[in-house]
């Protein structure tokens, strides 16, 4: 009885169906635990959290230098920047914009540096639905390889004030 004092001899090992279920559940938990290390070595999608300390001002300067060196065009006043395949690219999150527009090539890898100039932001790449956290003070490096072509939209999915829903960016892949 759950609400009454149990009988003195309540300490007994599980038997029958209960024992079987505990065994099955434990086995399943074992599968759950092994999948993550397996994917870490064999899978193509991992979040390693590679990051370096960076002051927001310093990150903005690096982003400006990157834009100045690799700019190929402009859309609605936002520069379109094409980093070298295998090279570094900078993406600055601020209230309420993503800067600049990145132009990538399918099948090439890029080191994308993500950081914030002010509050916390959320990098949410649509319609793929890939999501990463962006923090001020942290240079979050994603080694990203686009496997599909087209125009992709970056939505901010961490609340960052009243204009949060207007914080939209672009990544173009050729």
């Amino acid at each position: 009885m759950s609400i009454s004092i149990p009988a003195r001899d309540w300490f007994k090992p599980p038997e029958g169906a209960e024992k079987l279920w505990i065994g099955l559940a434990l086995l399943w938990c074992f599968v759950l635990s092994l999948m993550m290390p397996y994917w870490h070595f064999r899978g193509k999608q991992n979040s390693r959290g590679e990051a370096y300390a960076v002051a927001p001002v310093a990150f903005m300067e690096r982003t400006e230098a990157f834009v100045a060196a690799n700019k190929t065009g402009e859309r609605d006043g936002v520069p379109i920047v094409e980093p070298a395949p295998g090279g570094d690219a900078y993406l600055l999150a601020r209230m309420w914009s993503w800067y600049p527009i990145l132009k990538l090539r399918q099948g090439e890898s890029y080191r994308i540096h993500l950081s914030s100039g002010d509050l916390q932001h959320g990098f949410s790449l649509q319609p793929l639905n890939m999501n990463f956290q962006v923090l001020p003070g942290y240079d979050h490096v994603l080694t990203l390889t686009p496997t599909s072509k087209g125009e992709f939209t970056i939505v901010c999915n961490e609340f960052c004030g009243i204009g949060h829903q207007h914080m939209i960016g672009k990544i173009l892949v050729e």
Binding site: W21, I22, A25, L26, W28, C29, F30, L32, S33, M36, P37, H40, N46, S47, R48, G49, E50, A51, L114, N131, F132, Q133, L135, Y138, D139, H140, V141
Partner: peptide, 29 residues
Amino acid sequence: LLVDPGVGSSWKIWNTSYAMYLAVLASMI
């Protein structure tokens, strides 16, 4: 914190599943 910067893969994998998901086992029991 699974897609956060600053904490690495081993930290993330261990802390989301430590001791073989024994808390999940508890709920399944």
